[in-house]
């Protein structure tokens, strides 16, 4: 796993380097910021970090999330119904950053929230809140240039997606433009545990490496430790689990103690599957 192009000083580079030294991959849970409310959400994110998450992927709730399945849609609705605004999300991130200086924090959201704030202002606010990367679910490589330019001016890494159907042209663009990490889609469709991940062949991951693509982290349909293990064994730099994490929140929404315990157990179990063979 030599991603020399990405040996930098950013939090992602450091995280990947440290994990490589320990012969481990990254486990990165996703939750919707403000789900179900501001205070609980802060506690949820703290729990994820304390239980051993290597990085965080955090969503800003949006009314029309076309890349998300029912679980994450419901998380958005819970947060929106509680009046969560993008500004509240930035406040929560800033709080988390104060408590945890080193953990890479990625934002995952939809383009209209960035446009409505003003692209430059949005990235500037994300930078001062302590965000390391931004992935915009409905901005493909073909539309990313103006976003990536502003991101780089604000020391934020614009995350790109490698779909399972990526053409060589797409892989070449990824090689040229990807920063931080690459969100490798484990399958077609939308987020959710309803359809399981297809673990990509090592051949695809080697190909990404050959094109000089930022370290691939596998997402979509990952809910079990065995899937994390398989992703790492296939050469992925890590795995992201969103809907499975959010399902735990939904299932324990009325019992904070049980929620903390269940989330903590989940992260520990998933993390323990990141050891390289």
């Amino acid at each position: 796993m030599g991603h020399s192009k990405f040996d930098g000083t950013g939090r992602y580079s450091k995280m990947f380097a440290q994990l490589e030294a320990k012969n481990e991959g990254a486990f990165i849970p996703f939750v919707m910021i403000g789900d179900p409310d501001k205070e609980t959400s802060l506690d949820i994110i703290r729990t994820l970090v304390k239980a051993g998450a290597d990085g965080l992927e955090l969503g800003i709730p949006y009314s029309d999330p076309i890349a998300d399945g029912p679980t994450i849609q419901k998380a958005s609705i819970r947060a929106l119904n509680n009046g969560i605004k993008p500004q509240d999300c930035m406040d929560i991130i800033a709080e988390i950053r104060k408590e945890f200086a080193d953990i890479p924090i990625g934002l995952l959201l939809y383009s209209n929230l960035v446009l409505a704030r003003g692209m430059n202002t949005f990235y500037a606010e994300a930078e001062s809140a302590g965000v390391d990367s931004i992935l915009i679910a409905d901005v493909p490589i073909r539309e990313v240039a103006p976003f990536a330019q502003i991101a780089s001016a604000h020391n934020i890494q614009q995350i790109l997606i490698a779909p399972p159907n990526a053409s060589d042209e797409t892989l070449a663009s990824l090689g040229e433009l990807s920063t931080g990490y690459t969100y490798l889609l484990g399958r077609a469709g939308v987020t959710g545990t309803e359809t399981e991940v297809d673990i990509p062949a090592s051949a695809l991951i080697n190909k990404l490496d050959a094109y000089g693509v930022a370290p691939p982290v596998l997402g979509f349909g990952i809910s079990k430790p065995a899937q994390v293990q398989a992703a790492i064994d296939a050469g992925a730099a890590g795995a992201i689990s969103g809907s499975a994490t959010v399902n735990i929140i939904e299932a324990n929404i009325d019992n904070k103690e049980a929620l903390t315990e269940a989330l903590s157990d989940f992260v520990k179990t998933m993390k323990s599957a990141t050891k390289r063979a």
Binding site: I66, P140, I141, I161, A188
Partner: peptide, 11 residues
């Protein structure tokens, strides 16, 4: 206009 869709749909 443009193509503001998930990467998956571009092909």
């Amino acid at each position: 206009g443009g193509m503001y869709v998930p990467e998956l749909l571009i092909p």
